[in-house]
């Protein structure tokens, strides 16, 4: 119970401190919002096209929102050595890191629903499987946050974290079936798509709004949970190896 007080404090501090930091605003808010606007304008408010675009822009908003916030929240504190305060606290490392990612997960989830709100003005969203949509958004946010965590704990500067994140964020936009189906990718690229968590997140969201998916919903949820665990354990190991060396 004591530890959860620390968890809540870390989460509240990160939300207060980092949500409006310039690197997060530009990469985590403005960039996905601009893409959303661009796609919505291009669709000409065509309901069928808007519906097909929605899971893609939601995944994009989650991916950029979570990874950008972690790039800021971890590397700033590592550089100023205030992260040592957390490592000196009598709180298990796994809970500390979960607390550090919780702000990013929440940011990613909130970010994901901005396109939904905008879309609600143009299309009828009734018939959406909301629990599945929410589960898809949350698991995409958690796996993206842990991916961002892995990058953030491996570098020293905010710009390094943002740059390295871009190496996988931009290819993911095209490889994960965000804006066109995986079947349209060359066959040799598809295995790479299946190795990326947002592929499953986007597909869950497609299914949630009544579009066909390439795997059963339950299986995609399980795969995303497995991705989350692997990425989290890899991040903890990196911290143990590099930061408590």
């Amino acid at each position: 119970m004591k530890h959860w007080g620390a968890f809540a404090s870390i989460l509240a501090k990160d939300m207060r401190t980092y949500y409006l930091k310039p690197p997060n605003v530009s990469w985590g808010l403005v960039f996905p919002l601009a893409w959303t606007g661009m796609f919505f304008v291009r669709s000409g408010a065509n309901p069928s096209e808007l519906r097909s675009l929605l899971p893609g822009v939601m995944t994009l908003a989650v991916l950029f929102g979570t990874t950008s916030l972690l790039a800021v929240a971890i590397t700033f504190e590592k550089k100023s050595r205030s992260f040592e305060r957390l490592l000196l606290a009598p709180v298990p490392l796994s809970l500390l890191m979960f607390a550090k990612t919780a702000g990013a997960i929440l940011f990613g989830v909130l970010n994901a629903f901005v396109p939904v709100l905008l879309a609600a003005f143009f299309i009828n969203l009734s018939g959406t499987n909301w629990p599945a949509l929410l589960a898809g958004v949350i698991l995409t946010a958690v796996s993206s946050a842990f991916l961002g965590l892995l990058v953030a704990v491996s570098v020293a500067e905010v710009f390094e974290a943002q740059t390295i994140s871009n190496f996988f964020r931009f290819p993911m936009v095209f490889l994960c079936g965000l804006f066109f189906p995986l079947e349209r990718l060359p066959a040799w690229l598809r295995p790479l798509s299946y190795a990326l968590p947002p592929t499953y997140g986007a597909d869950i969201m497609h299914q949630a709004i009544g579009r066909p998916g390439f795997l059963p919903l339950w299986l995609e949820l399980l795969i995303l949970i497995a991705f989350c665990l692997v990425l989290f354990v890899a991040s903890l190991r990196t911290i143990n190896r590099r930061w408590i060396a």
């Binding site: 530890h3 007080g5 620390a6 870390i10 501090k13 305060r85 009598p90 709180v91």
Partner: peptide, 8 residues
């Protein structure tokens, strides 16, 4: 904040 990290 530092106090909260120690469960106070």
């Amino acid at each position: 904040f530092c106090a909260s990290l120690h469960g106070i």
